[in-house]
Nucleic acid binder design. Structure first.
Ligand SMILES: [Mn+2]
Ligand SMILES: [Mn+2]
Ligand SMILES: [Mn+2]
Ligand SMILES: [Mn+2]
Lengths: 218, 218
DNA sequence: AAATATATTTAGTCTTATCTAAATTTGCTG
DNA sequence: CAGCAAATTTAGATAAGACTAAATATATTT
């Protein structure tokens, strides 16, 4: 059985691999885990020892198939719990991450499966992220970042990239949520800020914000 | 914030105090925690240091009011989660203890409160044990053990004392659950076994079983 | 290709929670 | 009340996971 620390590292290695499509470096991992490079090295050595990652000294690591399957199980639990917290307990989408960070470590296959059934097998969590099914299968997404849209293009906001408290609270403040219909009205060349129309409201968002919103083209 | 180990010890000290109404001894605590006396001593010293227990070397320990309130919070969470698992997810009452043993350590006051509301503020868990309310208040019980009933007395099974898997599975097997109407037909003097009528069925249970069933007299 | 900068690993320390073995205290018995 | 047994504490070790400082490897510049 894996410790919570091991599980958290596996999940982060998985996320970094998906994001960069490259070997995960010690520094990148340490930064995400908010720890020191030496700690990341220790953990990579241990995970390699347990055959959960393929790790080459000084070069970086990637998940083994065993490690990947563990990581997906944890992601599945995390997203199911987030969905439970929002759908059943009435939390806001910006309140659930830290709680799910704990709940994802509860060890019980039958609990996960019954929770999944109770929620009626959801495909996406409150942030629009896909929930792996019981076999670890994840629905492919053809969404792109809002920053990649051109003027006059439209789409539906299907997910956020950054799901930090701060970003989610900002979105709530500007009244933007998953499912919104968005149209690009203008793009400022000098700072990449984007003027959009959303819910018949016109507003301007920074380039950084635009890079954290996943849109499905209409 | 308390570690899981500290929380588990606090909960067990609380249970032992309630059960024996005496100072908790190192050996008794170690046995319940399935650890060694030296480990229990270490933990008692740490808990005393944190003012969660009043502890006198060689004499034993009792919870401080701070420690008791922590313990009750953990018991509250444990029993709320057990109720959730049975009522909402469809687990059997003999499957939930180990999962709740993990869930009780999730840190989030608002989660506990929202879960309580979602379950409509239950007063008892699936084993008939009272659930402390948000202020730590526990409903007093006037139930007695089945072993204390005399021949011809009747009552309702309101709770189990032993809530181990094995005991609960046994009760399921003989078709006995919380809420059953039970009448004592006969008591064997030589081994304290009890013949009862339950659900119009007559059956015999051992003295040990009778000592683990809480009955409310009719 | 050497020099420098950056990334990574290693060595050694710390804390928590466990254990075994040894020392100490308490409590009971003769 | 002395002596022994049981209960409890202390001492010393171990493992996980973190940290700092030092060593080493890799990458970038001249
Ligand atoms: Mn986590
Ligand atoms: Mn999410
Ligand atoms: Mn527990
Ligand atoms: Mn219970």
């Amino acid at each position: 059985m894996l410790s919570q620390a091991e599980e958290n590292y596996l999940k982060e290695i998985y996320a970094l691999e998906e994001e960069t499509m490259q070997l995960v470096s010690t520094n990148a991992l340490a930064e995400k885990m908010r720890t020191k490079a030496s700690s990341a090295t220790d953990m990579l050595q241990k995970l390699a020892q347990k055959a959960l990652v393929d790790y080459t000294k000084y070069r970086g690591a990637r998940l083994s198939s065993k490690g990947k399957s563990k990581a997906i199980t944890i992601v599945r639990k995390h997203r199911l719990w987030e969905t439970f917290l929002v759908e059943k307990l009435g939390f806001n989408w910006d309140e659930v991450h830290d709680i799910a960070e704990q709940l994802e470590h509860i060890q019980s296959q039958s609990l996960t499966d019954k929770l999944d059934a109770f929620l009626e097998y959801p495909s996406f969590d409150p942030h629009g992220h896909p929930i792996p099914n019981v076999n670890g299968k994840i629905v492919a997404s053809d969404s792109i970042l809002l920053s990649e849209l051109n003027v006059d293009e439209e789409g539906i906001l299907v997910a956020v990239k950054d799901s930090s408290d701060g970003f989610l609270k900002y979105l709530s403040k500007i009244n933007m949520t998953i499912g919104d219909h968005i149209k690009v009205l203008d793009i400022e060349a000098f700072d990449n800020s984007v003027t959009i129309e959303n819910n018949t409201t016109r507003l301007s968002i920074s380039g950084n914000v635009a890079k954290n919103l996943y849109i499905k083209r209409l």
